[in-house]
Every structure is written in structure tokens, then in C-alpha cells.
Simulated assay, not measured.
Amino acid sequence: MSLPLPLVEVSGTPGECGVAYGAAARSSIAANTANYLERFAATGLDRPAVRRAGSRFRAASRQHAPRVADMLDGVAEGAGVPVDEIYALNARTELLYGSSSSSSSECTSIGVLDSRSASGHTLLAQNWDWHPAQRPYTLLLATRDEQGSTVLTLTEAGMLAKAGFNDAGLGVCVNMLTSDRDGRPGGVPYHVLLRMVLEQRVLGSALRVACSTPRSASINLLLGQAFSAGVPGEAIDLEVSPVDVGLLHPVDGVITHANHFEALSTARDTLRDFGGSSLFRSARARRLLGSGPLAEKDLQAVLADHGGHPQSICRHDVDALSEEDRSESLYAVIIDLDERRMSIAAGPPCHADTYREVRLTGLFA
């Protein structure tokens, strides 16, 4: 199996999975933590402040997501990194953007119902746009817990989730959002919530977790599940702020989303204070998807689109106003929920000669 980034496979209880993950990616986790400590310091958060924040997020995670907390505690143990720093790492969105004073944005996501896909499968896809310095610390994490549930996710070393799916055919893609309600205390970190969603077996349970778990940051979750026994699949988009949830359903079999609110009106979208490419990327992706059957090559073409270059769906690192504002499409991901398969290309995706695939059936041999 040739992949454009490392694959870590771990099995056992959540704690055992965490320890094994921490040990397997020990050097990357330590380097990624040090990298984020520097980024936190640039925003005015010194190491003691980061650890205090991490302790608060650990308490919230322990209260609302004990299995995820067991895994994160294990990651810290296996990697030899202070546990509060691991929780701060998983709360990097809250710590970097909790003041809602940044215009930074990331990611364009796509959901396709089986009724629109050429294969008859339910598909999710996205570009993950983030600071280019994070590319060396990105990996694929595959976990199989003591109950046999399997999750595969793209993530950053030391974190537990980003875009991914599980063996029940449930998957998620993710976009950052910012609102004037961000920064409320007591919520679980953005990336802990993602992990909680990926550990659910049915779409309704994933929605319940996403809606009912306290949050400190806004987040967009594009969820889908491939249903079986002749029942069609489903997809739904959740715009989640710390105080409310907005919903988007497929139109003509597709959903797209970028980094601004399209449905939720009870929180002020702070991206509107800055503008940016998000305001056209989602609508452009919808137009590019057209009206006919969609094959994976069609999704690849949308993810590689240069409309508005360099701040396009396929984002390029050439026009940042500062070091902190640099952003690039680091990886492009397409998930076939029926086949339990992720296809991934190193970004920017316009440069990708091929997508490499990993299937759940090929893991844990």
C-alpha cells in the first residue's frame, strides 16, 4: 500500500489505543506539540497558560466524552508529552481562534447522495486547507476498539480525528467556522467532538452527539452514512456554534460547504467582518458539480478548481499577509461510504497525479 502520508494502526480499549498511537507516532507528536506551542505563543499564550487551558479541556472531555479522554490520556502517556499539552493540541482551534479575531479559514467540503453518484454510492469529499508547516505532522489513524468498531481518519499527530469514517459506513468532513459566541467555557475541543461523532454507529446518534455536547468553538460537520439492505444513504450538514445548530440538506443530491454560516442565524458569523474566498467557494463547488451523475473524477476536478486562484477551492500558499495567515490545500480526501474506502492525494490537489486508497478491509490483518 503506497500512501502519501504515514498510517498508524492500533487496537484495544481506548486507553490501549491511545498508548499505542502515542508510542508509534512519538517523535511526530512531540514535534507537532512543540510547533503548536510556538504558534500559541505568537498569539500571547505562554506555556503555563496553554497547560491551564489544556487542563480545562481535559476536564470537559472527561465529563462529556470519557472514552475519548481515555484515549487522549493514553496518547500523552505513549508519546511522553504532558497530558495538558495533548489536550491543548486537540483544542488548537479554540486556542488560536477563540477570540474570533482572525480571518483565517480552511476547507471546502462536498457530500453526494447515492442517487447522484455514478457508482450509486454515498460519497464525501474535502480539501483540508491549513498552514503548510503542518504537512509533516499529518497522518492517517486507524483504530479498532475492544468492541470491534473501526475508525479511519486523517488527522494531525497527537489528535484523534478530522475527516474520516467508520465500519458502519458513517463518515464526516469538517470546516472551521467562527462566531461571536466562540470562547464559551465548558465545551469539549473541536477535535474531540469530531472523534465522538466518528465513534457513533448510526447517523441519528452522530447528530445527537454533535448537537447535545457542549462546545466552545463553532464547527461545520458534513455527515453521511451509507445505508444497507436496499435502503438509500443519507447526508446532512450541521453548522454548530456553542449555542445553536443550523441544518442544510442535500439539494439535487449534493451538499457543499466552506467556512461561513449558510443556515444558522442565531450567532454572528465573524468571517463576515473579514470576507474572503469562503463566500464563493461553496456556491462555486455546487455549480461545478452540475446536474448529472457524479463520478469520483468529477469530485477530484472540483477539489482541483482554481476559480479565484490562489484563494480558490484548490488553495495555494502564495499570498498570505503574514506567516500566521499562510494556508494551502494540504490533502484532498474522497470517502466512499459504501466501500468503506478513503482515497487521498497530497495537495494542492491540482498537482496530484493520482489518489491513493486505503480500505478498512485491508487493515488489522
Rank of each mutant, 00 (worst) to 15 (best):
M1G: 14
M1F: 10
M1S: 14
P6M: 04
V10T: 13
V10L: 02
S11G: 10
P14V: 02
A20M: 12
G22Q: 08
A23L: 11
A24G: 05
A31S: 13
T33Y: 05
R39A: 15
A41C: 09
T43F: 13
R47T: 12
G54C: 11
F57S: 03
A59C: 10
S61G: 15
A65T: 13
A79T: 14
V83A: 15
Y87P: 10
Y87M: 09
R92Q: 09
R92P: 08
E94Y: 03
G98E: 05
S103M: 06
D114K: 00
R116Y: 00
D129W: 01
D129S: 05
A133S: 15
A133I: 15
Q134L: 15
Q134R: 12
L141M: 10
T143Q: 08
T150Q: 15
E156P: 02
E156V: 13
M159D: 07
K162C: 14
G164C: 02
F165S: 01
D167E: 07
V174L: 08
V174D: 02
N175F: 00
M176E: 11
L177W: 04
D180F: 04
D182V: 05
G187P: 01
H191W: 09
L194A: 13
L194S: 13
M196W: 04
V197S: 06
E199P: 06
Q200F: 04
L203I: 08
A210K: 01
N220Y: 00
L222D: 04
L223K: 02
G224Y: 00
F227E: 15
V231T: 14
D237H: 07
L238A: 05
L238H: 03
V245Y: 03
G246W: 03
L248Y: 04
V251C: 08
G253T: 03
I255C: 03
H257L: 07
N259L: 04
L264I: 10
R268D: 15
R268N: 12
L271D: 13
G275D: 10
F280K: 09
R286L: 04
L288P: 08
L289M: 04
S291Q: 10
E296V: 06
E296R: 09
D298G: 02
G307H: 07
Q311G: 13
Q311I: 07
S312M: 07
E323T: 08
S329K: 05
Y331G: 09
I335K: 01
L337F: 01
R341C: 11
S343D: 09
A345M: 09
C350G: 14
A352G: 10
T354K: 12
E357C: 07
V358C: 05
L360M: 13
G362H: 11
L363S: 03
